[in-house]
Computed example of a mutant assay.
Amino acid sequence: MKLINKILFNIVIILLFFSCSSDDDMDISSNSKTKVELRLSYPQEIDISSPVNFIVSFKEINSGIETQVESKSPILNIDLISGNYKISVEGVIDNDKAPIKLTGILESISITGENQIIELSVHQSITQKGDLIFEEIYYTGSKNSLTGIPYFGDRYFKLYNNSDYVVYADGLLLAESEFTTNDKNDYSPNIMEQKFAAGGIIILPGKGKDYPIPPRSSIVIAESANNHNAIDKNYINLSSANFEMYSPYDDESVDNPQVPNTSELFNSVSIDKKGVRSYVIARLPENMSKETFLAENSYHYTYNEFGFLMDGDAMAIPNNWIIDAVNLSNGKDPDWILTSTSLDSGWTTCSLHEGDESRYGKSVNRIVTTQIPYKILQDTNNSKKDFKSGKPSLKK
């Protein structure tokens, strides 16, 4: 009976797949057009008395055809060929103090009929000055030089102090998304514009000023802070990492006693080898204990999958605690990004497409704007602009 039920379930999944494929491959060659009025709404705290310059991108998801329009008005009218669109907005408010960057995104919206009004909320890009940012994420692993088998033991995060001041790694949170960028569901409640749904959170050791990071310098947080290069020439030596994500609950984890360990605040963090998760670094408010954070920031969500009500539990990190964020994709436009656009309005990848074999041995590296008199990294809160794929900096 179990076998019969499994076969019937698989048949249903196959039928659903082909049904969805038919919808996704919708023919837009009919050239039927829709008059679209796009209305942009601002956060209440934003003063819009100064001039605003918007760049709006309309990308038809099935064909890949993209149209960009510049506007100085929050109401934009455009004729579009009917289809399924991703709409993204970047805006700048010019004022006497400092420009304010606005971002917004609609991951997927069907545009059909003669006329359609679309409302899109834009948010102020959050910039935390004088703290750490992601410099590099090495998640792809390397292939063994003899067997060609992928190896994932030498993955790491590299963080950079992009400021002119000493900052401290003590108590820093590093979190991995609960969800994935290649599988969008209608999770309820949707907290994304206020908080980041974290499936795993680690916290760095220290009592406040034990681990200073000088201006324009980096730290490495390794999954396994060992000399992997001793195993194979293609692997990376991480024995000099600053911190190690050692888990005492993982039987295969080998601790390097010379490298300080991170602690698991909520579940573990494992750098996703497919590159379909998002990562943030954050700091707890002053005087907030780990126990208080766990008690006050739990997140229970529900969603429907194939007609079944599903649920799960994660932690919710308020966006204003987050000092940097990066969304990863597997090489194609993701189904969605997992942060508010105020934190990161884009995504980065090492892959040309899903299953790309050339991704091995690559990392996503933040773009260097200048090396003189010291290295400054680009930080526009858009990972698609800020990162590029390349050789891991620690690979010899």
Results as ranks from 00 to 15, higher is better:
M310S: 11
L294R: 07
L80V: 05
E244W: 09
G331D: 05
L3T: 08
S41V: 11
T34N: 09
G355P: 02
T348E: 03
K388F: 14
D183N: 11
L102I: 01
N229E: 11
S71M: 03
K388W: 05
K86M: 13
I323S: 14
Y246F: 15
S19E: 08
L8V: 15
I221N: 09
I271K: 04
W336S: 12
I100Y: 00
T369W: 01
T292P: 00
A175W: 02
V254C: 03
A230S: 14
Q378R: 15
I317V: 14
N31F: 07
V276L: 08
Q258P: 00
L8H: 08
K97V: 10
M315T: 02
D186H: 05
G208E: 00
N115S: 13
Y139P: 01
T370S: 15
D324V: 03
D272V: 03
M310H: 12
S21I: 12
N185T: 10
K33D: 04
I219Q: 07
D356S: 01
V69I: 15
G104I: 07
S41Y: 08
N161C: 08
L102A: 01
G104A: 08
S21T: 11
S253Y: 11
I46Q: 09
R283W: 09
I105V: 13
D79I: 03
I376F: 13
K375Y: 07
E305I: 10
G200L: 01
N234I: 04
E70V: 06
N267P: 04
F196S: 01
F308E: 12
N5Q: 14
